Simulated assay, not measured.
Amino acid sequence: MLARPHRLTRGDDYRMVVRRGSRCGGSRVITSVLPTTDTERAARFGFIISKQVGNAVIRNTVRRRLKAVCAELLSEVPQGTDVVIRALPASATASFVELRADVQRCLTRLTRQVTT
């Protein structure tokens, strides 16, 4: 599970990452990454799961899976980076492995872009 310092909690932070960050889309998720000037701060993650994904049970399942994926990939994300993951309707039927592959591909690609 993601500890409190690794979570985006303010709406302004979500908006800034989605609007100004680099984006990578897949069939199940869209990942936005925005590096910040505060490199001492831990990487933070936020999740957007709309009602188009499914009912509350399905949305919460998708959210829990995405949080677990991000907890596993935390070491691959540079300090001071904010990440927002938007779940698409196809994420409702995706397995944990499929979600992990989509998120990992996008995070690898976007963090490589940011650091170069």
Score class of each variant (00 low, 15 high):
Lys67Ser: 12
Leu74Tyr: 01
Asp102Glu: 15
Ala90Glu: 12
Ile85His: 02
Leu34Lys: 03
Arg41Thr: 13
Leu2Pro: 07
Arg10Phe: 11
Gly26Val: 08
Glu40Asn: 13
Ile48Trp: 08
Leu88Cys: 07
Ile30Gly: 04
Asp13Asn: 08
Thr93Phe: 09
Asn55Asp: 15
Ala3Gln: 15
Glu72Lys: 15
Asn60Tyr: 12
Gln79Lys: 15
Arg7Met: 08
Gln52Arg: 15
Val103Met: 01
Ser32Asn: 15
Ala101Lys: 14
Arg23Tyr: 06
Ser95Pro: 02
Leu110Glu: 00
Val62Asn: 01
Ile30Phe: 05
Asp13His: 11
Val33Pro: 00
Val114Leu: 13
Arg100Ile: 06
Arg86Ala: 13
Ser32Glu: 07
Ala94Cys: 04
Ser91Phe: 03
Phe45Asp: 00
Tyr14Pro: 04
Ala43Trp: 03
Leu8Lys: 05
Asp13Phe: 04
Leu2Met: 11
Val103Asn: 00
Asp102His: 05
Glu40Tyr: 12
Leu99Pro: 02
Leu107Ala: 02
Arg105Pro: 06
Gln79Glu: 13
Ala92Pro: 09
Lys51Ala: 14
Cys106Trp: 01
Ala3Pro: 08
Thr36Phe: 02
Asn55Pro: 08
Arg112Phe: 12
Cys70Leu: 03
Arg28Phe: 04
Gln79Ser: 15
Asn60Gln: 12
Arg65Asp: 06
Arg63Gly: 03
Arg65Tyr: 10
Val103Lys: 00
Ala42Cys: 12
Ala68Arg: 10
Ala101Met: 11
Arg4Gln: 14
Arg19Leu: 12
Asn60Cys: 08
Arg100Ser: 08
Pro5Ile: 09
Val77Arg: 05
Ile58Trp: 05
Gln113Val: 11
Val84Cys: 05
Ser32Asp: 14
Gln79Met: 15
Glu40Thr: 14
Ala3Met: 10
Met16Val: 14
Thr9Asn: 04
Thr108Val: 08
Leu74Lys: 13
Ile48Val: 15
Met1Trp: 11
Ala42Met: 13
Pro78Cys: 08
Val53Leu: 07
Ile58Arg: 14
Gly46Glu: 01
Val77Pro: 02
Val84Gly: 00
Thr93Asp: 13
His6Asn: 14
Thr81Phe: 11
Arg112Ile: 01
Gly11Lys: 11
Val69Pro: 07
Arg7Gly: 02
Gly21Glu: 02
Val53Ser: 00
Arg64Cys: 05
Ser32Met: 10
Met16Thr: 15
Arg59Ala: 07
